[in-house]
Amino acid sequence: RRRVRAILPYTKVPDTDEISFLKGDMFIVHNELEDGWMWVTNLRTDEQGLIVEDLVEEVG
């Protein structure tokens, strides 16, 4: 499975499927959606939700 790491922190918009995260958080990518969004699991918090790919980098 594809893994990505947050390069910046992010605070979710209330009442959306987004998740908040810290710089350095690792995610497993489940689905890549339109307009650069990804459905992921945050490995630190075990939370699932949407993040935008501009805020993460690939992990080898």
Rank of each mutant, 00 (worst) to 15 (best):
Arg1Thr: 13
Arg1Phe: 13
Arg1Val: 15
Arg1Pro: 15
Arg1Leu: 15
Arg1Ile: 15
Arg1Cys: 10
Arg1Trp: 13
Arg1Glu: 14
Arg2Ile: 06
Arg2Asn: 06
Arg2Cys: 07
Arg2Trp: 06
Arg2Leu: 07
Arg3Lys: 12
Arg3Phe: 14
Arg3Glu: 10
Arg3Met: 15
Arg3Trp: 14
Val4Asp: 00
Val4Asn: 02
Val4Arg: 05
Val4Tyr: 08
Val4Phe: 09
Val4Pro: 02
Val4Met: 08
Arg5Cys: 08
Arg5Asn: 04
Arg5Asp: 02
Arg5Ser: 06
Arg5Tyr: 08
Arg5Lys: 11
Arg5Ala: 06
Ala6Met: 01
Ala6Thr: 02
Ala6His: 01
Ala6Lys: 00
Ala6Pro: 01
Ala6Trp: 02
Ala6Gly: 04
Ile7Val: 12
Ile7Tyr: 06
Ile7Phe: 07
Ile7Lys: 12
Ile7Trp: 06
Ile7Cys: 06
Leu8Phe: 12
Leu8Ser: 15
Leu8Tyr: 13
Leu8Lys: 14
Leu8Trp: 12
Leu8Gln: 15
Leu8Val: 15
Leu8Arg: 14
Pro9Ile: 05
Pro9Asp: 15
Pro9Ala: 14
Pro9Gln: 11
Tyr10Gln: 03
Tyr10Pro: 03
Tyr10Arg: 04
Tyr10His: 12
Tyr10Ile: 02
Thr11Leu: 11
Thr11Trp: 08
Thr11Gln: 12
Thr11Tyr: 08
Thr11Pro: 03
Thr11Met: 11
Lys12Ala: 15
Lys12Asn: 05
Lys12Thr: 04
Lys12Val: 03
Lys12Trp: 02
Val13Glu: 11
Val13Asp: 09
Val13Leu: 12
Val13Trp: 09
Val13Arg: 15
Pro14His: 09
Pro14Glu: 13
Pro14Phe: 08
Pro14Ala: 11
Pro14Gly: 08
Pro14Val: 09
Pro14Tyr: 07
Pro14Arg: 08
Pro14Trp: 07
Pro14Cys: 06
Pro14Thr: 08
Asp15His: 13
Asp15Pro: 03
Asp15Gly: 14
Asp15Cys: 10
Asp15Gln: 11
Thr16Val: 03
Thr16Leu: 03
Thr16Trp: 03
Thr16Ala: 03
Thr16Pro: 01
Thr16Tyr: 02
Thr16Arg: 05
Thr16Met: 03
Thr16Gly: 05
Asp17Leu: 15
Asp17Val: 09
Asp17Cys: 09
Asp17His: 14
Asp17Arg: 14
Glu18His: 05
Glu18Ile: 05
Glu18Lys: 04
Glu18Ala: 05
Ile19Trp: 01
Ile19Phe: 02
Ile19Ala: 02
Ile19Gly: 01
Ile19Gln: 01
Ile19His: 01
Ser20Phe: 02
Ser20Ala: 04
Ser20His: 03
Ser20Arg: 02
Ser20Asn: 08
Ser20Glu: 04
Ser20Thr: 09
Ser20Ile: 01
Ser20Leu: 01
Phe21Gly: 00
Phe21Val: 04
Phe21Met: 05
Leu22Glu: 14
Leu22Phe: 10
Leu22Trp: 11
Leu22Gly: 06
Leu22Ala: 10
Lys23Tyr: 08
Lys23Trp: 06
Lys23Asp: 06
Lys23Leu: 10
Lys23Cys: 08
Lys23Gly: 07
Gly24His: 07
Gly24Gln: 04
Gly24Pro: 00
Gly24Tyr: 07
Gly24Ser: 05
Gly24Lys: 03
Gly24Phe: 06
Asp25Ile: 02
Asp25Pro: 01
Asp25Ser: 01
Asp25Cys: 03
Asp25Asn: 00
Met26Leu: 15
Met26Glu: 14
Met26Thr: 11
Met26Ala: 06
Met26Pro: 04
Met26Ile: 14
Met26Gly: 04
Met26Ser: 07
Phe27Gly: 00
Phe27Pro: 00
Phe27Met: 12
Phe27Thr: 00
Phe27Lys: 00
Phe27Asn: 00
Phe27His: 02
Phe27Gln: 00
Phe27Asp: 00
Phe27Ile: 03
Phe27Cys: 02
Ile28Lys: 06
Ile28Ala: 08
Ile28Arg: 05
Ile28Gly: 03
Ile28His: 08
Ile28Val: 13
Ile28Ser: 07
Ile28Leu: 12
Ile28Thr: 10
Ile28Tyr: 09
Val29Ser: 02
Val29Tyr: 02
Val29Arg: 01
Val29Asn: 00
Val29Phe: 03
Val29Leu: 05
Val29Cys: 03
Val29Lys: 02
Val29Met: 04
Val29Trp: 02
His30Val: 08
His30Pro: 00
His30Asp: 07
His30Gln: 08
Asn31Gly: 12
Asn31Arg: 10
Asn31Ile: 14
Asn31Trp: 15
Asn31Ala: 14
Asn31Lys: 14
Asn31Met: 14
Asn31Ser: 15
Asn31Val: 15
Glu32Tyr: 09
Glu32Phe: 07
Glu32Met: 13
Glu32Leu: 11
Glu32Gln: 12
Glu32Cys: 10
Leu33Lys: 09
Leu33Gly: 09
Leu33Trp: 11
Leu33Asn: 08
Leu33His: 09
Leu33Arg: 13
Leu33Val: 10
Glu34Thr: 12
Glu34His: 14
Glu34Asn: 14
Glu34Met: 12
Glu34Pro: 13
Glu34Gly: 15
Glu34Ser: 13
Asp35Leu: 11
Asp35Ser: 11
Asp35Phe: 11
Asp35His: 12
Gly36Gln: 05
Gly36Glu: 03
Gly36Pro: 05
Gly36Tyr: 04
Trp37Asn: 06
Trp37His: 09
Met38Phe: 09
Met38Arg: 04
Met38Ile: 11
Trp39Cys: 08
Trp39Val: 06
Trp39His: 06
Trp39Pro: 00
Trp39Thr: 04
Trp39Lys: 05
Trp39Asn: 05
Trp39Met: 07
Trp39Ala: 04
Val40Gln: 00
Val40Trp: 01
Val40Ile: 02
Val40Tyr: 00
Val40Leu: 01
Thr41Lys: 07
Thr41Trp: 07
Thr41Arg: 08
Thr41Ala: 05
Thr41Ser: 08
Thr41Cys: 08
Thr41Leu: 10
Thr41Tyr: 09
Asn42Cys: 08
Asn42Glu: 01
Asn42Tyr: 02
Asn42Ser: 10
Asn42Lys: 07
Asn42Ile: 03
Leu43Thr: 10
Leu43Ala: 05
Leu43Phe: 06
Leu43Arg: 04
Leu43Glu: 12
Arg44Asn: 07
Arg44His: 05
Arg44Ala: 06
Arg44Glu: 06
Arg44Ser: 07
Arg44Phe: 05
Arg44Pro: 01
Arg44Cys: 06
Arg44Gln: 05
Arg44Gly: 04
Thr45Ile: 02
Thr45Lys: 03
Thr45Cys: 03
Thr45Asp: 04
Thr45Phe: 01
Thr45Tyr: 02
Asp46Gln: 14
Asp46Leu: 14
Asp46His: 14
Asp46Ala: 12
Asp46Ser: 15
Asp46Asn: 15
Asp46Cys: 12
Glu47Val: 06
Glu47Arg: 06
Glu47Trp: 03
Glu47Met: 08
Glu47Cys: 07
Glu47Lys: 07
Glu47Asn: 05
Glu47Leu: 07
Glu47Gln: 10
Glu47His: 07
Glu47Tyr: 04
Gln48Met: 13
Gln48Thr: 15
Gln48His: 12
Gly49Ala: 01
Gly49Asn: 01
Gly49Trp: 01
Gly49Val: 01
Gly49Phe: 02
Gly49Gln: 00
Leu50Pro: 04
Leu50Lys: 14
Leu50Arg: 15
Leu50Gly: 04
Leu50Thr: 10
Leu50Asp: 02
Ile51Val: 13
Ile51Asp: 00
Ile51Gly: 00
Ile51Pro: 00
Ile51Thr: 03
Ile51His: 01
Val52Gly: 14
Val52Phe: 14
Val52Ser: 15
Val52Arg: 15
Val52Leu: 15
Val52Trp: 15
Val52Cys: 12
Val52Ile: 14
Val52Ala: 15
Val52Asp: 15
Val52Glu: 12
Val52Met: 14
Glu53Tyr: 13
Glu53Val: 14
Glu53Phe: 11
Glu53Asp: 12
Asp54Ile: 09
Asp54Gln: 11
Asp54Asn: 13
Asp54Trp: 14
Leu55Ser: 09
Leu55Gly: 04
Leu55Arg: 09
Val56Cys: 08
Val56Gln: 03
Val56Met: 08
Val56Ile: 11
Val56Pro: 00
Glu57Lys: 06
Glu57Ile: 10
Glu57Asn: 06
Glu57Trp: 05
Glu58Gln: 10
Glu58His: 10
Glu58Lys: 08
Glu58Val: 10
Glu58Thr: 11
Glu58Leu: 09
Val59His: 08
Val59Asp: 08
Val59Cys: 10
Val59Thr: 09
Val59Tyr: 11
Val59Gly: 06
Gly60Ala: 14
Gly60Pro: 14
Gly60Lys: 13
Gly60Tyr: 15
Gly60Trp: 14
Gly60Asn: 14
Gly60Val: 14
Gly60Gln: 14
